[in-house]
Design a protein around this nucleic acid. Structure first.
Lengths: 229, 229
DNA sequence: CCCTGCCATCTGCCATGGTAGATCAACACC
DNA sequence: GGTGTTGATCTACCATGGCAGATGGCAGGG
């Protein structure tokens, strides 16, 4: 059964769908804004931030701000001392390195599960992402390569089909932008990463969980050592 | 400079400090209560729960309940469909197995960091926990062995001194009680676990991160396969 | 100088009330 | 019989107001 309401095939496709942020809750949007500010450094580590102050700055009530801060607290980006104040957490090199370690092992689990569960469609998707990376490399566009790499990782997560692994990695994603900047900056590094990605995908498609896990872990750890020398 | 207000040395030590739950926020207590109910099965998977309903049952306002549900949501124990309802997440065998996989890798990271950072005091603490396990085993008390095992793991986490690893493991801790029941039920299993724990601690004290990580991972995975056959 | 109790101020925390969206049943219509 | 409509009801969501605890400065007594 083909979905008759597929966008792009109907005459109603002139109507753009609502953008993501339009129908998100205020709390979710506040979370995103505050997180961006922390990652960008606008809110410095150790700085004291208050619910009411953020609420006034965002021109909303204090309650959704409070929810956003609670979520940021669970993800380790802010700390709250009861009845006292909320402070943005430290994001020093050691902390980022630890998070990188965690991320590496979670990515490895993702690759392992993908090798166990990937369908033919998943295989095709991953191969397409690899092609996209190679194409982006030929165009010498470092940013495009980074985007393509993230797309490949997303495809692997989709193949792993594990809500929990995806959820935890999503919680660590905020920290990525702090480390992924200097990575893939050289052509040599990009070539190495492509080879590693190739090996990972090969292991997944071959259905070898152990190999996929090991390959992904080695890749993530090596990337980490490049990003945070 | 010695702190003159150290409890136990002053005449005021007759006053017991407040218990933990007395000064916890309503949201934190609501979180604990709801989580318990879910783990115990009182709130069945798929069941629809509402903020106001829970608030009425706990005899508090809806707002702290809402915060508790948000936290449970990021931990994957409930799911919220916007403007519609909140539902208890599924906790089937596959889900628990995946979480066990994640837990194993995080514990392995913890052991790795412990091997890199443990101080002499940490070594002493871990040795003491091992002794406690052996003592509990001689008394043939399975519950005591389980408690002692958890104490050892806590000591390893303390030696790892990683706020993020500890934080993530804490988020997974709610699921442990669903799997740790049938584990360690036989004497043979307890003996195997003790030997594995011994190997882990040895590697940590020897300062061998790779070995510690591998030993912990093998231990956690084998325990998982026993708990969820 | 050091310490202690006091007080103004700020902060997180919670209760209350109200609103828009989702859901579903009943119903009218073709 | 399927289709669209309506309306009642439930839900998550948010704004407002107020409160207890934490904080830091200050005055007064050692």
């Amino acid at each position: 059964m083909v979905d008759q309401h597929q966008p792009g095939t109907s005459a109603l496709s002139v109507l753009r769908p609502f953008t993501e942020t339009d129908l998100q809750s205020l709390a979710a949007r506040a979370y995103a804004r505050i997180r961006e500010a922390i990652v960008a450094g606008s809110l410095a580590p150790g700085q004291r931030i208050s619910e009411r102050g953020l609420a006034a700055a965002l021109d909303i009530s204090a309650q959704p701000v409070r929810e956003a801060l609670r979520r940021l607290e669970v993800e380790g980006m802010v700390e709250t001392r009861p009845r006292s104040g909320t402070y943005v957490a430290d994001l020093g090199r050691d902390r980022l390195f630890e998070i990188g370690l965690i991320r590496a092992t979670l990515e490895a689990v993702s690759a392992r599960l993908a090798a166990e569960r990937a369908t033919a469609a998943d295989h095709a998707a991953m191969r397409a992402r690899l092609e996209a990376i190679a194409g982006a490399m030929r165009s010498e566009d470092a940013a495009a390569v980074t985007l393509a790499n993230e797309a490949l990782h997303d495809a692997i997560h989709a193949a792993a089909a594990s809500r929990d692994v995806t959820r935890l990695l999503e919680g660590l994603r905020a920290y990525d932008h702090l480390t992924r900047e200097r990575i893939l900056s050289t052509a040599e590094e990009r070539a190495t990463a492509l080879a590693e990605h190739q090996a990972i995908v090969d292991a997944i498609i071959a259905g070898e969980p152990q190999a996929a896990e090991a390959a992904m872990k080695a890749h993530a750890l090596r990337s980490l050592s490049v990003a945070l020398p």
